[in-house]
Design a protein around this nucleic acid. Structure first.
Lengths: 94, 94
DNA sequence: ACTATAGGCAAGTGACAACTTGCATATCAA
DNA sequence: TTGATATGCAAGTTGTCACTTGCCTATAGT
């Protein structure tokens, strides 16, 4: 089990969320190629797979397997743990 | 320069933000004692100081020095980088 | 000046995380 | 079944982070 904060502490994983947010339901290979093409990343498939595992473990990505393909979907609900923890208010000291 | 995501990827730092959010303007020693008393942490003063440095570097804490004391204030503005990056919407695939 | 208080700097250590490499499994097509 | 596709598992390496330890600076009180 990985918490949301740790899952988000990696630019590659944040880019994955960006891409899934833009186009939901991509496979591992699609995510790999889009990260390489549009973001210049040169990571192995296994590296991206591990990142997806972290995101899934944190609940930020849910998956669905059909045949030999696995589709990944962005789930923003765990982000509420961040937005809800510290009430966004202005400083009023002094 | 530390980004917001990295700064939040540590439970001690999140607790510091909790405490500053509850009572703004505390000094290093006050934060140390409150973390020890209320959260059972047994960290050295230097450890907490380094955490405050990370939070300050990320812009989540701003400081003000008066005499030999340094007061710490919670600044929630950098949190917007998180809340604004991924539009919070529900999944609509399938 | 002396002492105590509040904090800072820097090197060293242990643990963990990101990434690679190599091999294995499962599905689809011929 | 043979081969290609899509993904999973696991060990090893490297780098980085959290924490400690030891010493140093600066302010305030007497």
């Amino acid at each position: 089990m990985v918490d949301v904060f740790r899952a988000l502490d990696d630019e590659t994983r944040r880019l994955v969320l960006d891409e899934l947010s833009a186009r939901d339901g991509q496979t591992l290979f699609e995510i790999c190629s889009v990260l390489t093409m549009r973001h210049g990343l040169s990571l192995t498939r296994q590296a991206i797979s591990q990142h997806l595992g972290v995101l899934e473990s944190a609940g930020l990505v849910v998956t669905e397997r059909r045949g030999r393909s696995k589709f990944h979907y962005f789930n923003p609900e765990p982000l509420a743990e961040i937005t809800g923890r510290w009430p966004t208010r202005k400083r009023t000291e002094q």
